[in-house]
Design a protein around this nucleic acid. Sequence first.
RNA 1: GCUGCAUUCGUCUAGUGGUCCAGGACAUCAGAUUCUCAGUCUGAGGAUCGCGGGUUCGAAUCCCGCAUGCAGUACCA
Length: 511
Amino acid sequence: MKPRVRFAPSPTGPLHIGGVRTALYNYLFAKQNGGTMLLRIEDTDQTRFVPGAEEYIIEAFQWLGIKFDEGVGIGGEFGPYRQSERKAMYKQYADQLIANGYAYYAFDTPEALEQKRKDCEAEKKTFQYDLHTRGEMTNSLTLEASEVERRIAAGEPYVVRFMHQPDTEILVDDLIRGEVRINSNILDDKVLYKSDGMPTYHLANIVDDHLMQITHVIRGEEWLPSAPLHVMLYKAFGWEAPRFAHLPLLLKPDGNGKLSKRDGDRLGFPVFPLQWKDPKSGEISSGYRESGYLPEAVINMLALLGWNPGNDQEVMSLDELIQLFSLEKISKAGAKFDLEKAKWFNHHYLQAVDDAELAKNFQATLKQKNIDACMEKITRVVALVKERLYFTNDLWEQSSFFFERPSSYDEQAIKKRWKEGTPERLQAIAEILKGCVPFDKESAHNQVMDYIHQNELNMGQIMNSFRLTLVGAAKGPDLFEIVDILGVEEVIERINAGIIAIENHIKNQNN
RNA sequence: GCUGCAUUCGUCUAGUGGUCCAGGACAUCAGAUUCUCAGUCUGAGGAUCGCGGGUUCGAAUCCCGCAUGCAGUACCA
Protein backbone atom coordinates (compact mmCIF):
# COMPACT_ATOMS: atom_id res chain seq x y z
CA MET A 1 0.00 0.00 0.00
CA LYS A 2 1.27 3.43 -0.92
CA PRO A 3 1.78 5.60 2.16
CA ARG A 4 -0.31 8.68 2.75
CA VAL A 5 1.20 11.28 5.06
CA ARG A 6 0.18 14.70 6.11
CA PHE A 7 1.64 17.93 7.34
CA ALA A 8 -0.87 19.62 9.58
CA PRO A 9 0.20 23.01 10.87
CA SER A 10 -1.89 25.34 12.93
CA PRO A 11 -2.17 28.79 11.34
CA THR A 12 -1.12 30.67 14.45
CA GLY A 13 1.82 32.42 12.85
CA PRO A 14 4.71 31.81 10.49
CA LEU A 15 5.96 28.31 9.95
CA HIS A 16 8.79 27.41 12.28
CA ILE A 17 11.95 25.85 10.81
CA GLY A 18 11.35 22.77 12.96
CA GLY A 19 7.99 22.45 11.28
CA VAL A 20 9.69 22.75 7.93
CA ARG A 21 11.91 19.82 8.82
CA THR A 22 8.91 17.77 9.90
CA ALA A 23 7.27 18.52 6.56
CA LEU A 24 10.49 17.69 4.74
CA TYR A 25 10.76 14.27 6.37
CA ASN A 26 7.12 13.57 5.56
CA TYR A 27 7.75 14.61 1.99
CA LEU A 28 10.90 12.51 1.59
CA PHE A 29 9.16 9.49 3.03
CA ALA A 30 6.09 9.89 0.84
CA LYS A 31 8.02 10.49 -2.37
CA GLN A 32 10.43 7.66 -1.78
CA ASN A 33 7.56 5.24 -1.49
CA GLY A 34 5.46 6.67 -4.28
CA GLY A 35 2.94 7.91 -1.74
CA THR A 36 1.13 11.17 -1.29
CA MET A 37 1.47 14.02 1.14
CA LEU A 38 -1.31 16.38 2.01
CA LEU A 39 -1.50 19.75 3.67
CA ARG A 40 -4.17 20.06 6.32
CA ILE A 41 -4.75 23.26 8.23
CA GLU A 42 -5.59 22.68 11.88
CA ASP A 43 -7.45 25.81 12.77
CA THR A 44 -9.70 24.52 15.51
CA ASP A 45 -8.59 27.22 17.92
CA GLN A 46 -10.43 30.26 16.71
CA THR A 47 -8.80 32.48 19.30
CA ARG A 48 -5.32 31.88 17.97
CA PHE A 49 -6.00 32.30 14.29
CA VAL A 50 -3.56 34.70 12.63
CA PRO A 51 -4.49 36.16 9.25
CA GLY A 52 -1.94 35.48 6.55
CA ALA A 53 -0.41 32.50 8.27
CA GLU A 54 -1.96 29.99 5.91
CA GLU A 55 -0.80 31.87 2.83
CA TYR A 56 2.64 32.15 4.40
CA ILE A 57 2.84 28.39 4.90
CA ILE A 58 1.91 27.68 1.31
CA GLU A 59 4.37 30.22 -0.02
CA ALA A 60 7.16 28.86 2.15
CA PHE A 61 6.80 25.37 0.76
CA GLN A 62 6.66 26.71 -2.75
CA TRP A 63 9.96 28.45 -2.18
CA LEU A 64 11.49 25.32 -0.70
CA GLY A 65 10.29 23.11 -3.53
CA ILE A 66 8.23 20.84 -1.33
CA LYS A 67 5.10 20.01 -3.24
CA PHE A 68 1.92 18.71 -1.70
CA ASP A 69 -0.29 16.32 -3.61
CA GLU A 70 -3.48 17.24 -1.83
CA GLY A 71 -4.75 19.76 0.62
CA VAL A 72 -5.46 23.40 1.21
CA GLY A 73 -4.68 25.35 -1.92
CA ILE A 74 -4.57 22.20 -4.05
CA GLY A 75 -7.76 20.28 -3.41
CA GLY A 76 -8.33 16.55 -3.47
CA GLU A 77 -11.00 13.98 -2.83
CA PHE A 78 -10.66 13.98 0.95
CA GLY A 79 -11.45 17.65 1.45
CA PRO A 80 -12.15 20.04 2.85
CA TYR A 81 -8.66 20.19 4.30
CA ARG A 82 -9.24 23.05 6.66
CA GLN A 83 -10.58 21.78 9.97
CA SER A 84 -12.76 24.81 10.56
CA GLU A 85 -14.61 23.81 7.40
CA ARG A 86 -15.06 20.30 8.74
CA LYS A 87 -16.53 21.53 12.00
CA ALA A 88 -19.98 19.99 11.52
CA MET A 89 -18.69 16.47 11.13
CA TYR A 90 -16.80 16.13 14.39
CA LYS A 91 -19.78 16.17 16.75
CA GLN A 92 -21.09 12.82 15.60
CA TYR A 93 -17.75 11.25 16.51
CA ALA A 94 -17.81 12.78 19.96
CA ASP A 95 -21.38 11.48 20.35
CA GLN A 96 -20.32 8.04 19.21
CA LEU A 97 -17.64 7.92 21.88
CA ILE A 98 -20.13 8.91 24.56
CA ALA A 99 -22.69 6.39 23.35
CA ASN A 100 -20.10 3.65 23.58
CA GLY A 101 -18.88 4.66 27.01
CA TYR A 102 -15.48 6.00 25.94
CA ALA A 103 -16.22 9.61 26.76
CA TYR A 104 -18.47 11.75 28.92
CA TYR A 105 -19.95 15.19 29.23
CA ALA A 106 -18.33 17.61 31.64
CA PHE A 107 -19.98 20.81 32.81
CA ASP A 108 -17.18 22.26 34.91
CA THR A 109 -16.65 25.88 34.02
CA PRO A 110 -13.19 27.21 33.32
CA GLU A 111 -13.49 29.16 36.57
CA ALA A 112 -14.38 26.05 38.55
CA LEU A 113 -11.39 24.22 37.09
CA GLU A 114 -9.14 27.14 37.85
CA GLN A 115 -10.34 27.15 41.45
CA LYS A 116 -9.78 23.43 41.73
CA ARG A 117 -6.22 23.83 40.48
CA LYS A 118 -5.55 26.56 42.99
CA ASP A 119 -6.92 24.50 45.85
CA CYS A 120 -4.69 21.61 44.91
CA GLU A 121 -1.69 23.86 44.58
CA ALA A 122 -2.27 25.11 48.12
CA GLU A 123 -1.92 21.50 49.23
CA LYS A 124 1.23 21.12 47.11
CA LYS A 125 -0.59 18.86 44.71
CA THR A 126 -1.27 19.20 41.03
CA PHE A 127 -4.77 18.84 39.82
CA GLN A 128 -5.43 16.54 36.94
CA TYR A 129 -8.85 15.73 35.53
CA ASP A 130 -8.51 11.97 35.50
CA LEU A 131 -9.89 8.72 36.80
CA HIS A 132 -8.98 9.70 40.35
CA THR A 133 -10.70 13.07 40.32
CA ARG A 134 -13.52 12.83 37.83
CA GLY A 135 -15.81 11.52 40.56
CA GLU A 136 -15.56 14.87 42.33
CA MET A 137 -16.37 16.96 39.29
CA THR A 138 -19.54 18.01 37.56
CA ASN A 139 -20.04 15.60 34.69
CA SER A 140 -22.28 12.93 33.27
CA LEU A 141 -20.55 10.40 35.51
CA THR A 142 -21.56 12.16 38.72
CA LEU A 143 -24.86 13.71 37.65
CA GLU A 144 -28.15 11.95 37.24
CA ALA A 145 -28.95 11.15 33.62
CA SER A 146 -32.01 13.37 33.76
CA GLU A 147 -29.95 16.25 35.07
CA VAL A 148 -27.44 15.83 32.27
CA GLU A 149 -30.24 15.89 29.74
CA ARG A 150 -31.76 18.93 31.37
CA ARG A 151 -28.51 20.86 31.28
CA ILE A 152 -27.85 20.05 27.67
CA ALA A 153 -31.43 20.90 26.70
CA ALA A 154 -31.09 24.18 28.56
CA GLY A 155 -28.09 25.03 26.42
CA GLU A 156 -25.63 24.88 29.26
CA PRO A 157 -22.07 24.77 27.92
CA TYR A 158 -20.27 21.47 28.17
CA VAL A 159 -17.17 19.73 26.91
CA VAL A 160 -16.65 16.08 26.04
CA ARG A 161 -13.81 14.34 27.80
CA PHE A 162 -12.15 11.05 26.99
CA MET A 163 -12.57 8.46 29.72
CA HIS A 164 -9.43 6.47 30.36
CA GLN A 165 -9.88 2.94 31.65
CA PRO A 166 -7.99 2.05 34.84
CA ASP A 167 -4.87 -0.13 34.93
CA THR A 168 -4.43 -0.47 31.23
CA GLU A 169 -1.01 -0.61 29.67
CA ILE A 170 -1.05 1.40 26.49
CA LEU A 171 1.49 0.54 23.84
CA VAL A 172 2.71 3.13 21.39
CA ASP A 173 4.71 1.44 18.69
CA ASP A 174 6.96 4.17 17.38
CA LEU A 175 9.02 3.75 14.21
CA ILE A 176 11.86 5.78 15.70
CA ARG A 177 11.68 5.02 19.40
CA GLY A 178 10.42 1.48 19.47
CA GLU A 179 7.76 0.42 21.91
CA VAL A 180 6.74 3.01 24.47
CA ARG A 181 4.45 1.83 27.25
CA ILE A 182 2.32 3.99 29.47
CA ASN A 183 -0.09 3.09 32.22
CA SER A 184 -3.54 4.59 31.73
CA ASN A 185 -3.78 5.56 35.42
CA ILE A 186 -1.56 8.58 35.00
CA LEU A 187 -3.31 9.92 31.93
CA ASP A 188 -5.77 12.75 32.17
CA ASP A 189 -9.22 12.82 30.65
CA LYS A 190 -8.44 15.15 27.80
CA VAL A 191 -11.08 17.41 26.38
CA LEU A 192 -12.04 16.16 22.93
CA TYR A 193 -14.83 18.51 22.12
CA LYS A 194 -14.90 22.11 23.31
CA SER A 195 -17.82 24.13 24.54
CA ASP A 196 -17.61 26.31 21.44
CA GLY A 197 -18.58 23.34 19.28
CA MET A 198 -15.09 22.76 17.95
CA PRO A 199 -13.10 19.61 18.45
CA THR A 200 -9.70 19.83 20.11
CA TYR A 201 -6.57 18.77 18.29
CA HIS A 202 -6.84 15.26 19.66
CA LEU A 203 -10.27 14.49 18.27
CA ALA A 204 -9.96 16.36 15.00
CA ASN A 205 -6.56 14.87 14.35
CA ILE A 206 -7.65 11.28 14.80
CA VAL A 207 -10.90 11.69 12.90
CA ASP A 208 -9.21 13.43 9.99
CA ASP A 209 -6.24 11.12 9.82
CA HIS A 210 -8.66 8.23 9.65
CA LEU A 211 -10.99 9.83 7.11
CA MET A 212 -8.07 10.98 4.99
CA GLN A 213 -6.60 7.48 5.16
CA ILE A 214 -3.30 8.57 6.62
CA THR A 215 -0.93 5.63 7.00
CA HIS A 216 2.01 7.29 8.77
CA VAL A 217 1.97 10.07 11.31
CA ILE A 218 5.41 11.70 11.29
CA ARG A 219 5.48 14.56 13.76
CA GLY A 220 7.59 16.25 16.42
CA GLU A 221 8.55 14.62 19.68
CA GLU A 222 6.41 17.09 21.62
CA TRP A 223 3.49 14.90 20.59
CA LEU A 224 4.85 11.73 22.10
CA PRO A 225 3.17 12.29 25.48
CA SER A 226 -0.24 12.50 23.86
CA ALA A 227 0.33 9.54 21.59
CA PRO A 228 -1.18 7.10 24.13
CA LEU A 229 -4.42 9.06 24.04
CA HIS A 230 -4.40 8.89 20.27
CA VAL A 231 -3.82 5.16 20.36
CA MET A 232 -6.77 4.79 22.72
CA LEU A 233 -8.95 6.93 20.49
CA TYR A 234 -8.29 4.71 17.50
CA LYS A 235 -9.21 1.73 19.67
CA ALA A 236 -12.37 3.42 20.90
CA PHE A 237 -13.48 4.10 17.37
CA GLY A 238 -12.50 0.64 16.27
CA TRP A 239 -10.20 2.05 13.63
CA GLU A 240 -6.80 0.82 12.60
CA ALA A 241 -4.19 3.29 13.80
CA PRO A 242 -1.53 4.67 11.47
CA ARG A 243 2.14 4.06 12.21
CA PHE A 244 3.74 6.72 14.38
CA ALA A 245 7.16 8.30 14.08
CA HIS A 246 8.09 10.97 16.61
CA LEU A 247 10.94 13.15 15.41
CA PRO A 248 13.66 14.51 17.69
CA LEU A 249 13.38 18.20 18.51
CA LEU A 250 15.39 21.02 17.01
CA LEU A 251 17.29 22.67 19.84
CA LYS A 252 18.64 26.17 20.19
CA PRO A 253 22.40 26.46 19.54
CA ASP A 254 23.27 27.97 22.89
CA GLY A 255 22.27 26.23 26.06
CA ASN A 256 19.41 23.82 25.84
CA GLY A 257 15.77 23.80 25.03
CA LYS A 258 13.54 23.71 22.03
CA LEU A 259 14.34 26.17 19.29
CA SER A 260 11.66 28.79 19.60
CA LYS A 261 10.39 31.66 17.56
CA ARG A 262 12.20 34.14 19.74
CA ASP A 263 15.67 32.64 19.34
CA GLY A 264 16.38 33.35 15.73
CA ASP A 265 17.09 37.00 15.52
CA ARG A 266 18.69 36.93 18.94
CA LEU A 267 21.30 34.43 17.74
CA GLY A 268 21.82 35.71 14.25
CA PHE A 269 19.94 33.24 12.10
CA PRO A 270 16.36 33.00 10.94
CA VAL A 271 13.93 30.50 12.44
CA PHE A 272 11.44 31.08 9.66
CA PRO A 273 11.70 30.13 6.02
CA LEU A 274 10.31 33.46 4.87
CA GLN A 275 10.31 36.85 6.45
CA TRP A 276 7.24 37.42 8.57
CA LYS A 277 5.59 40.59 9.64
CA ASP A 278 3.31 40.16 12.58
CA PRO A 279 -0.03 41.65 11.58
CA LYS A 280 -0.77 42.88 15.09
CA SER A 281 2.53 44.22 16.41
CA GLY A 282 4.11 44.93 13.05
CA GLU A 283 7.21 43.19 14.34
CA ILE A 284 9.39 41.67 11.63
CA SER A 285 11.10 38.29 11.96
CA SER A 286 13.76 37.45 9.43
CA GLY A 287 13.46 34.60 6.97
CA TYR A 288 15.93 32.35 5.22
CA ARG A 289 14.86 33.52 1.82
CA GLU A 290 15.35 37.20 2.58
CA SER A 291 18.62 36.53 4.36
CA GLY A 292 20.11 35.19 1.15
CA TYR A 293 19.83 31.46 1.74
CA LEU A 294 19.18 29.12 -1.16
CA PRO A 295 16.32 26.66 -0.76
CA GLU A 296 18.61 23.76 -1.67
CA ALA A 297 20.94 24.69 1.16
CA VAL A 298 18.14 25.01 3.68
CA ILE A 299 16.73 21.64 2.65
CA ASN A 300 20.11 19.92 2.78
CA MET A 301 21.04 21.44 6.13
CA LEU A 302 17.67 20.64 7.65
CA ALA A 303 17.65 17.08 6.37
CA LEU A 304 20.92 16.40 8.19
CA LEU A 305 19.67 17.77 11.49
CA GLY A 306 18.47 14.49 12.91
CA TRP A 307 19.04 12.19 9.99
CA ASN A 308 21.93 10.89 7.90
CA PRO A 309 22.25 8.45 5.04
CA GLY A 310 24.42 6.09 7.08
CA ASN A 311 27.64 7.04 5.32
CA ASP A 312 29.81 10.13 4.93
CA GLN A 313 27.77 11.80 2.25
CA GLU A 314 26.52 15.20 3.34
CA VAL A 315 25.80 17.15 0.20
CA MET A 316 22.52 15.97 -1.24
CA SER A 317 19.91 17.41 -3.54
CA LEU A 318 16.21 16.99 -2.83
CA ASP A 319 16.07 14.14 -5.34
CA GLU A 320 19.02 12.41 -3.74
CA LEU A 321 17.43 12.85 -0.33
CA ILE A 322 14.29 11.17 -1.62
CA GLN A 323 16.40 8.25 -2.77
CA LEU A 324 18.44 7.94 0.42
CA PHE A 325 15.95 8.84 3.13
CA SER A 326 14.84 6.28 5.67
CA LEU A 327 12.94 6.57 8.94
CA GLU A 328 15.30 4.03 10.50
CA LYS A 329 18.23 6.41 10.22
CA ILE A 330 16.53 9.23 12.09
CA SER A 331 18.33 9.87 15.35
CA LYS A 332 16.59 9.87 18.70
CA ALA A 333 18.17 12.82 20.47
CA GLY A 334 17.44 16.46 19.76
CA ALA A 335 19.78 18.33 17.43
CA LYS A 336 21.20 21.76 18.00
CA PHE A 337 20.98 24.12 15.10
CA ASP A 338 24.46 25.02 13.84
CA LEU A 339 24.70 28.38 12.10
CA GLU A 340 28.24 27.76 10.82
CA LYS A 341 27.25 24.58 9.08
CA ALA A 342 24.24 26.27 7.59
CA LYS A 343 26.50 28.99 6.21
CA TRP A 344 28.87 26.44 4.79
CA PHE A 345 26.04 24.66 2.98
CA ASN A 346 24.83 27.91 1.54
CA HIS A 347 28.30 28.86 0.37
CA HIS A 348 28.59 25.48 -1.25
CA TYR A 349 25.30 25.69 -3.13
CA LEU A 350 25.91 29.28 -4.10
CA GLN A 351 28.92 28.22 -6.17
CA ALA A 352 26.66 26.18 -8.40
CA VAL A 353 24.34 29.08 -9.19
CA ASP A 354 24.76 30.54 -12.64
CA ASP A 355 26.62 33.87 -12.76
CA ALA A 356 23.97 35.35 -15.02
CA GLU A 357 21.19 34.47 -12.60
CA LEU A 358 23.04 35.94 -9.65
CA ALA A 359 23.79 39.02 -11.73
CA LYS A 360 20.16 39.48 -12.62
CA ASN A 361 19.12 39.55 -8.98
CA PHE A 362 22.04 41.74 -8.08
CA GLN A 363 21.02 44.25 -10.69
CA ALA A 364 17.75 44.73 -8.83
CA THR A 365 19.65 45.35 -5.61
CA LEU A 366 21.82 47.91 -7.36
CA LYS A 367 18.78 49.65 -8.80
CA GLN A 368 17.45 50.10 -5.29
CA LYS A 369 20.68 51.88 -4.47
CA ASN A 370 20.25 54.04 -7.54
CA ILE A 371 23.17 52.41 -9.27
CA ASP A 372 22.79 51.83 -12.94
CA ALA A 373 25.29 49.36 -14.29
CA CYS A 374 25.22 47.25 -17.41
CA MET A 375 24.69 43.51 -17.17
CA GLU A 376 28.07 42.81 -18.69
CA LYS A 377 29.85 44.56 -15.86
CA ILE A 378 27.60 43.10 -13.19
CA THR A 379 28.15 39.60 -14.52
CA ARG A 380 31.92 40.07 -14.55
CA VAL A 381 31.84 41.33 -10.99
CA VAL A 382 29.66 38.45 -9.87
CA ALA A 383 31.96 35.91 -11.49
CA LEU A 384 34.91 37.50 -9.73
CA VAL A 385 33.50 37.57 -6.20
CA LYS A 386 31.18 34.56 -6.22
CA GLU A 387 33.62 32.25 -4.47
CA ARG A 388 33.72 34.58 -1.50
CA LEU A 389 29.97 34.64 -0.97
CA TYR A 390 28.16 32.91 1.84
CA PHE A 391 24.85 34.50 1.06
CA THR A 392 23.50 36.16 -2.03
CA ASN A 393 23.12 39.23 0.16
CA ASP A 394 26.91 39.37 0.57
CA LEU A 395 27.24 40.47 -3.02
CA TRP A 396 27.02 44.15 -2.23
CA GLU A 397 29.47 44.03 0.61
CA GLN A 398 31.93 42.07 -1.47
CA SER A 399 31.71 44.22 -4.56
CA SER A 400 30.41 47.68 -3.70
CA PHE A 401 33.72 49.26 -4.70
CA PHE A 402 33.13 48.27 -8.30
CA PHE A 403 30.13 50.57 -8.36
CA GLU A 404 30.98 53.27 -5.87
CA ARG A 405 34.15 55.15 -5.13
CA PRO A 406 35.50 54.61 -1.65
CA SER A 407 33.95 57.10 0.73
CA SER A 408 36.46 56.31 3.42
CA TYR A 409 39.77 54.54 3.72
CA ASP A 410 40.50 51.82 6.22
CA GLU A 411 42.41 53.23 9.18
CA GLN A 412 44.54 50.15 9.82
CA ALA A 413 45.48 49.84 6.18
CA ILE A 414 46.59 53.45 6.00
CA LYS A 415 48.80 53.01 9.00
CA LYS A 416 50.36 49.87 7.62
CA ARG A 417 50.56 50.59 3.90
CA TRP A 418 50.76 54.32 3.38
CA LYS A 419 54.38 55.39 3.64
CA GLU A 420 56.65 58.26 2.85
CA GLY A 421 56.82 58.52 -0.92
CA THR A 422 53.66 56.56 -1.58
CA PRO A 423 51.79 59.49 -3.19
CA GLU A 424 54.58 60.14 -5.63
CA ARG A 425 54.83 56.52 -6.62
CA LEU A 426 51.10 56.23 -7.15
CA GLN A 427 51.15 59.34 -9.29
CA ALA A 428 53.83 57.69 -11.39
CA ILE A 429 51.63 54.61 -11.69
CA ALA A 430 48.74 56.77 -12.82
CA GLU A 431 50.92 58.26 -15.55
CA ILE A 432 52.03 54.86 -16.71
CA LEU A 433 48.47 53.55 -16.88
CA LYS A 434 47.43 56.54 -18.95
CA GLY A 435 49.92 55.46 -21.57
CA CYS A 436 48.67 51.91 -21.54
CA VAL A 437 47.06 51.26 -24.92
CA PRO A 438 45.16 49.11 -25.26
CA PHE A 439 44.23 49.16 -21.62
CA ASP A 440 43.52 45.76 -20.13
CA LYS A 441 44.44 43.47 -17.28
CA GLU A 442 47.47 42.13 -19.06
CA SER A 443 49.04 45.40 -20.15
CA ALA A 444 48.33 47.18 -16.87
CA HIS A 445 49.91 44.33 -14.99
CA ASN A 446 53.02 44.31 -17.17
CA GLN A 447 53.51 48.07 -17.01
CA VAL A 448 53.15 48.22 -13.26
CA MET A 449 55.52 45.32 -12.79
CA ASP A 450 58.07 46.96 -15.02
CA TYR A 451 57.87 50.11 -12.91
CA ILE A 452 58.36 48.10 -9.74
CA HIS A 453 61.41 46.31 -11.10
CA GLN A 454 62.98 49.40 -12.61
CA ASN A 455 62.75 51.25 -9.31
CA GLU A 456 63.89 48.25 -7.31
CA LEU A 457 60.72 48.19 -5.24
CA ASN A 458 58.85 45.16 -4.00
CA MET A 459 55.28 44.49 -4.97
CA GLY A 460 53.79 45.26 -1.61
CA GLN A 461 55.06 48.80 -1.65
CA ILE A 462 52.95 49.60 -4.67
CA MET A 463 50.11 47.14 -4.70
CA ASN A 464 48.84 47.67 -1.18
CA SER A 465 48.56 51.42 -1.39
CA PHE A 466 47.25 51.17 -4.94
CA ARG A 467 44.54 48.82 -3.71
CA LEU A 468 43.72 51.19 -0.90
CA THR A 469 42.92 54.01 -3.33
CA LEU A 470 40.73 51.78 -5.50
CA VAL A 471 38.91 49.77 -2.85
CA GLY A 472 39.26 51.84 0.30
CA ALA A 473 40.40 48.83 2.24
CA ALA A 474 42.89 45.97 2.23
CA LYS A 475 40.52 43.47 0.72
CA GLY A 476 39.08 42.20 -2.51
CA PRO A 477 40.01 40.10 -5.51
CA ASP A 478 43.07 40.35 -7.76
CA LEU A 479 43.93 44.00 -8.17
CA PHE A 480 44.36 43.92 -11.93
CA GLU A 481 40.98 42.30 -12.33
CA ILE A 482 39.59 45.29 -10.46
CA VAL A 483 41.61 47.68 -12.58
CA ASP A 484 40.37 46.04 -15.73
CA ILE A 485 36.69 46.23 -14.75
CA LEU A 486 36.97 49.79 -13.45
CA GLY A 487 38.65 51.09 -16.60
CA VAL A 488 41.59 53.44 -16.96
CA GLU A 489 39.80 56.72 -16.35
CA GLU A 490 38.10 55.59 -13.19
CA VAL A 491 41.33 54.06 -11.91
CA ILE A 492 43.26 57.29 -12.40
CA GLU A 493 40.56 59.36 -10.79
CA ARG A 494 40.48 57.06 -7.80
CA ILE A 495 44.24 57.21 -7.43
CA ASN A 496 44.18 60.98 -7.41
CA ALA A 497 41.17 61.23 -5.13
CA GLY A 498 42.70 58.68 -2.80
CA ILE A 499 45.98 60.47 -2.53
CA ILE A 500 44.28 63.74 -1.60
CA ALA A 501 41.91 62.19 0.88
CA ILE A 502 44.46 60.04 2.63
CA GLU A 503 47.11 62.76 2.80
CA ASN A 504 44.54 65.12 4.27
CA HIS A 505 43.48 62.53 6.73
CA ILE A 506 47.04 62.00 7.91
CA LYS A 507 47.67 65.73 8.16
CA ASN A 508 44.56 66.22 10.27
CA GLN A 509 45.55 63.42 12.55
CA ASN A 510 49.00 64.86 13.19
CA ASN A 511 47.58 68.22 14.17
C1' G B 1 6.05 17.11 41.55
C1' C B 2 4.39 13.34 38.08
C1' U B 3 4.98 10.76 33.22
C1' G B 4 7.79 9.95 29.00
C1' C B 5 12.08 10.48 25.87
C1' A B 6 17.20 11.15 25.39
C1' U B 7 22.86 11.00 26.56
C1' U B 8 29.76 9.38 21.16
C1' C B 9 34.95 15.38 19.56
C1' G B 10 32.65 22.69 20.61
C1' U B 11 28.33 21.28 16.89
C1' C B 12 25.80 17.56 13.45
C1' U B 13 26.79 12.65 13.42
C1' A B 14 29.13 7.18 11.82
C1' G B 15 29.13 3.06 14.79
C1' U B 16 23.77 -2.62 16.03
C1' G B 17 29.70 -7.59 20.69
C1' G B 18 35.99 -8.19 18.19
C1' U B 19 38.16 -4.99 11.64
C1' C B 20 37.27 1.42 16.88
C1' C B 21 43.54 3.02 21.75
C1' A B 22 36.26 5.39 17.84
C1' G B 23 35.50 7.42 11.35
C1' G B 24 33.44 11.86 8.58
C1' A B 25 31.56 16.96 8.14
C1' C B 26 31.26 22.06 10.15
C1' A B 27 34.06 25.04 13.41
C1' U B 28 39.31 25.82 15.40
C1' C B 29 44.67 25.97 14.57
C1' A B 30 49.06 25.56 11.18
C1' G B 31 51.30 25.41 6.25
C1' A B 32 50.70 26.48 0.89
C1' U B 33 48.56 29.76 -2.78
C1' U B 34 54.37 35.24 -2.04
C1' C B 35 49.63 42.71 -3.35
C1' U B 36 45.43 42.43 0.66
C1' C B 37 41.20 40.12 2.49
C1' A B 38 38.35 36.12 1.45
C1' G B 39 38.12 31.50 -1.03
C1' U B 40 40.69 26.99 -2.23
C1' C B 41 44.23 22.99 -1.19
C1' U B 42 47.18 20.18 2.45
C1' G B 43 47.87 18.96 7.42
C1' A B 44 47.11 19.07 12.86
C1' G B 45 44.69 19.12 17.46
C1' G B 46 40.08 17.65 19.47
C1' A B 47 35.53 12.38 22.35
C1' U B 48 38.81 7.80 28.89
C1' C B 49 31.69 6.90 23.90
C1' G B 50 27.30 10.96 30.93
C1' C B 51 28.56 8.06 35.69
C1' G B 52 28.53 3.33 38.44
C1' G B 53 27.69 -1.68 38.40
C1' G B 54 26.94 -6.22 35.81
C1' U B 55 26.81 -10.10 31.33
C1' U B 56 30.97 -11.79 28.15
C1' C B 57 37.32 -14.36 26.52
C1' G B 58 35.98 -9.37 24.64
C1' A B 59 31.14 -3.61 25.15
C1' A B 60 30.36 2.83 22.50
C1' U B 61 27.43 -1.41 21.17
C1' C B 62 23.48 -6.11 25.75
C1' C B 63 21.21 -5.67 31.10
C1' C B 64 20.41 -2.85 35.80
C1' G B 65 20.88 1.56 38.77
C1' C B 66 22.11 6.70 39.13
C1' A B 67 22.92 11.57 37.18
C1' U B 68 21.91 15.24 33.81
C1' G B 69 19.14 17.41 29.82
C1' C B 70 14.66 17.89 27.19
C1' A B 71 9.43 17.31 26.32
C1' G B 72 4.50 16.92 28.10
C1' U B 73 1.37 17.86 32.13
C1' A B 74 -4.75 23.98 28.81
C1' C B 75 -11.99 23.98 26.64
C1' C B 76 -3.27 25.47 22.39
C1' A B 77 -1.77 22.89 18.66
